[in-house]
Write a protein that binds this DNA or RNA. Structure first.
Lengths: 236, 236
DNA sequence: TAGATTGTTAATCGATTAACAATC
DNA sequence: TAGATTGTTAATCGATTAACAATC
């Protein structure tokens, strides 16, 4: 009987697909027309079989002996990740991190367009940052409801993060990109992705400590090839 | 004979320890003196056994029926991750992201202190951002050699990232915190941690797409509890 | 004491890696 | 044809989860 459910791609695969996308863009700029998993793997120091498996998730069919068309692979990855049609987003918290995101040109090519920012600081309200207007936080719920904005970006201080998330949910948002070091409570059906800079720093500092400690002992080991192997994802 | 090597904690554990640290800081501020793994797990929606396993890596010994002293647990996590003695860092690329990091107060409590920034833009050189001076990139190698700065932060455009990494290595740096969407080549013994914002966004957008697609089908499923479970790490 | 929690070992689960046939 | 690569299945590896004794 017919229940051969396709397993949804795990998050690590999604993260790596984003890396492949970036590599492919560079290869395309260099005039490359086809590419093999072996080649992509070399660029990122990944196992070619792993690259294959990840690409399999997009459903694209390649040519034995040749590989994939760079252009076509870029397109299927974009479709797969939902980067093909741009989604509109509201950003809350026009501090330095919020400002950096508002100025991050690449977001558009990743399917995200920040169309307004919100803040509670009267000094900031009414100003324009990187071409995006800063509105009072009170307008968030109503505006997102009316404009059907589904994605919210949280770049506020810790204490306010949950409150802002609640407002986003109240406004009908369905995805929250959270840059505050806080675990947000949201109802079922709302997606949260945390960008935890402290977690990234934890990996960096521990591995540095380990490398220095090893060296002191005069040992040599595998600390060298130090790229975070799997879960480099989700970073920034 | 006696080779009972302790397995080094995997990166996912390091990432979660950073999350526990943040939770513990909040609990401490709330006046809490002891805490159990169950409690920490509730805060983050993690399995308590997993929390236990992670905390085990720090070597702390708890009390059955009680848990751990919040204060002591904070200290051992900081020691374990290498956050106890502040490390000095140089940042290269004084754009909006670099500026945001320079203004990120919390870094100091995560054991990192950015003591100088570097850029090639004459407009920026000589200025001071969040109390940190911006120096010409030419000075990077010599200064890091002389000051024994071991950590470099890369917040430059893609094309320059590898060049900057090379300079950091030339300056004797041993750890690179890379915010550019590029896979850096560095010699053995140099640690690289990538913060890939695109990877985080890939997870967010794919899961949003899935949630919306499911809803259209009128199905209900487990999409709801949407916190990225394991590899939330490596992010901003 | 009773029972929640630690500490630890075993079972499960899932991702990575290896193996290999099919193919261009 | 020869051989590199895709596509796919099986084996391995490692992390998560379950089970349970020890303990406060």
């Amino acid at each position: 009987m017919g229940g051969n459910m396709v397993q949804p791609a795990p998050n690590v695969t999604l993260r790596r697909l984003a890396l492949y996308h970036s590599v492919l863009q560079r290869l395309q700029k260099d005039g490359r027309e086809v590419v093999s998993c072996t080649r992509i793997g070399e660029e990122l120091r990944f196992d070619p079989t792993q690259v294959r498996k990840d690409i399999e998730a997009t459903g694209i069919v390649g040519k034995a002996r040749i590989g994939y068309e760079v252009k076509a692979l870029l397109v299927v990855i974009e479709e797969f990740l939902g980067w093909n049609n741009t989604r509109e987003a509201f950003l809350v918290g026009a501090g330095s991190l919020g400002t950096a995101l508002l100025g991050y040109e690449r977001l558009k090519s990743l399917g995200l367009s920040i169309i307004a920012a919100f803040d509670t600081n009267p000094q900031k309200i009414g100003s324009t940052i990187h071409g995006v207007e800063v509105l009072p936080l009170e307008k968030l719920v109503d505006l997102s409801r009316r404009m059907l904005v589904l994605v919210g970006i949280i770049t506020v201080p810790d204490e306010s993060a949950q409150t802002v998330a609640d407002l986003m949910v109240a406004g009908g948002m369905r995805a929250v990109w959270n840059f505050a070091p806080v675990s947000l409570a949201v109802p079922d059906g709302v997606v949260v992705e945390d960008v935890q800079i402290a977690s990234s720093l934890a990996v960096l500092s521990k591995r540095l400590s380990r490398a220095l400690a090893l060296e002191k002992k005069g040992e040599d080991s595998d600390v060298g090839n130090a790229h975070a192997p799997a879960a480099r994802g989700q970073k920034f």
